[in-house]
Design a protein around this nucleic acid. Structure first.
Ligand SMILES: [Mn+2]
Ligand SMILES: [Mn+2]
Ligand SMILES: [Mn+2]
Ligand SMILES: [Mn+2]
Lengths: 144, 144
DNA sequence: TGATATTTGTAGCCTAGGCTACATTTTTCG
DNA sequence: CGAAAAATGTAGCCTAGGCTACAAATATCA
């Protein structure tokens, strides 16, 4: 049957949007680990694989593999039985991610989302917020 | 060294947040497919695997495998060389996802995010927006 | 009609990110 | 000190979601 193609030749626009979302997803896990490690280092003085695993709700084996990936990407180092540390790059990433997380939560709360729902949604949303959107959130919070 | 555990016994709260984000991510792909198939059916009268793949920016083999998963989950049916169709459940999902997508884009645009950035970010954000947040978005758009 | 082009399907490979089970190392404490 | 507990690490398995390469079916059109 295949009706005449009215308008759908290459559609690079939609494809690019989905591709961006996929890329963002790929970095989401590492971002969460970096943010969490920074938090634990700040609040506890150290970031042990076991604590990281418990906070993320995954097995310690899963956490250790992710930490290996962080090391491979040059974001973290680890001393056995001494915990995980962030490299310069890891700290920069963590700082950026923490700030972004805070901004997303603040915006949701400002729009009337209950605190716990805001925290929960932000945990996923944060990884898909571009700089342009982040700037818009910031403007809104400042202006209201 | 292991300083005395000040406060971090079980931490089920953080774990639950991360877990929710992981769950949301798991359904993201199927949601996008359902939404896209509904769009293609509406605008072109049919949804061919090849067109789906092009719009998503993936190989046709990838699209076909995802379509198999849709079928397995009871969300779609397919007639070879006739394209893909949505079941009742698939249509309900698509309708919900489309509405949610629109609302997220509208909110971002209302906050001053440029149109294309809004579309791009929404493609990822939409999968992490709870009903509570959705309601807040809706209220904001109505009230301003 | 029959050759060619397109579409669809299959096979096999890869990585990320989960898991459990088991092994090893380090800490803790009686 | 030495045994028990805890933490860390390793091995092996699974699924989702990508890919390329090849095979088969269908459509198109000269
Ligand atoms: Mn997160
Ligand atoms: Mn976060
Ligand atoms: Mn999407
Ligand atoms: Mn969408």
């Amino acid at each position: 049957m295949r009706v005449p193609p009215t308008t759908l030749p290459a559609e690079p626009t939609h494809a690019r949007r989905f591709g961006k979302a996929r890329t963002a997803q790929a970095s989401a896990v590492l971002e969460d680990y970096a943010e969490l490690i920074a938090d634990l280092l700040a609040s506890e003085g150290e970031a042990r694989p076991t604590d990281i695993a418990r906070r993320l709700g995954v097995s310690h084996a899963t956490a250790i593999k992710a930490i290996s990936r962080l090391k491979r990407e040059g974001l973290a180092t680890a001393r056995p039985y001494r915990g995980v540390f962030l490299t310069e790059a890891g700290e920069r990433l963590a700082a950026r991610v923490r700030e972004r997380h805070r901004l997303v939560v603040d915006l949701l709360v400002a729009l009337g989302v209950p605190a716990e729902a805001a925290e929960q949604d932000a945990e996923g949303i944060e990884h898909h917020v571009s700089d342009a959107t982040l700037a818009a959130f910031s403007r809104f919070l400042k202006a209201r």
